[in-house]
């Protein structure tokens, strides 16, 4: 059972692995340009597992910024993860003991959260271990490759690969949005607010923008399209 779940997590994580490989490749290049060694860049990726936060962090390191600045930047950019963690905490099966939660907490990224949320029913620790492992390998490996050999991929290929993760997000949100009006409205409101912030309020960081958009959309839909109140296990469909 454990192994089956682990394997399922690994397989489900393949798109994340491929997407991370290309995204972190770009991060590796940036990190080396900012004065980090290949090992340091790899350590940043291994211990943080987050794209925007790492990019900002490396910028602060390069500029010799203060630790307070570092803490504030990481906090604002990464605060969205607490929302994801909270959402995911409602989907854990009974075998999620505290130590297991402490381990899996490490790997709650945008993409892992997305895939785990899209699973029907509960999620198990071993499923998460598998998905987090393959994703982390992709993230760290891509960082090392990018840091060590920045010009390995032609620019047009790495540019095109930059779409993978977004393509995956669309594949997760569109099918349920077809079936459920509430989901469709949540998706449209979030996209609209996101565009407003991006084009009209550019001083709001991308991390904060995600929080603002998601909270507005989810509050509106929770009020207008509340979920059926029976103790429903009707979870997010893949």
């Amino acid at each position: 059972m454990k192994f089956q779940h682990f394997l399922k997590g690994l397989v489900h994580g393949i798109p994340i692995f491929l997407g991370y490989l290309s995204v972190s490749f770009g991060f590796g290049i940036t990190a080396v340009k900012s004065g980090l060694t290949v090992m340091e860049a790899a350590a940043v990726s291994l211990f943080n597992l987050t794209s925007a936060g790492q990019a900002a962090g490396v910028g602060i390191i390069a500029a010799g910024g203060s630790l307070v600045e570092m803490i504030l930047a990481q906090f604002t950019i990464n605060l969205r993860y607490s929302l994801m963690s909270l959402s995911l905490s409602q989907k854990l099966d009974k075998s999620f003991t505290t130590p297991r939660r402490l381990i899996v907490s490490y790997g709650i990224t945008d993409e892992i959260f997305a895939l785990a949320s899209a699973q029907p029913g509960k999620i198990t620790p071993w499923y998460m271990y598998g998905m987090i492992l393959i994703s982390t390998v992709g993230w760290v490996l891509g960082t090392i490759l990018g840091a060590a050999a920045g010009s390995l991929l032609p620019a047009d290929v790495s540019d095109a690969l930059g779409l993978m993760l977004y393509g995956m997000f669309l594949a997760i949100i569109i099918p349920p949005a077809r079936k459920e009006k509430g989901v469709l409205v949540a998706v449209l409101i979030a996209a609209a607010v996101s565009c407003i912030i991006y084009f009209l309020l550019p001083f709001i960081s991308s991390g904060f923008s995600v929080i603002i958009c998601a909270v507005i959309a989810a509050v509106v839909c929770a009020l207008v399209f509340p979920q059926a109140d029976e103790d429903d296990e009707t979870e997010v469909q893949p």
């Binding site: 945008d110 959260f113 899209a118 997760i172 949540a186 996209a191 565009c195 997010v236």
Partner: peptide
Amino acid sequence: RFLKSFLYYIPYAVLSAMTIP
């Protein structure tokens, strides 16, 4: 019920906001 519904919509809203634009 409100919080449950809120958390149900969060993943879709988060992904949509991250994808667009």
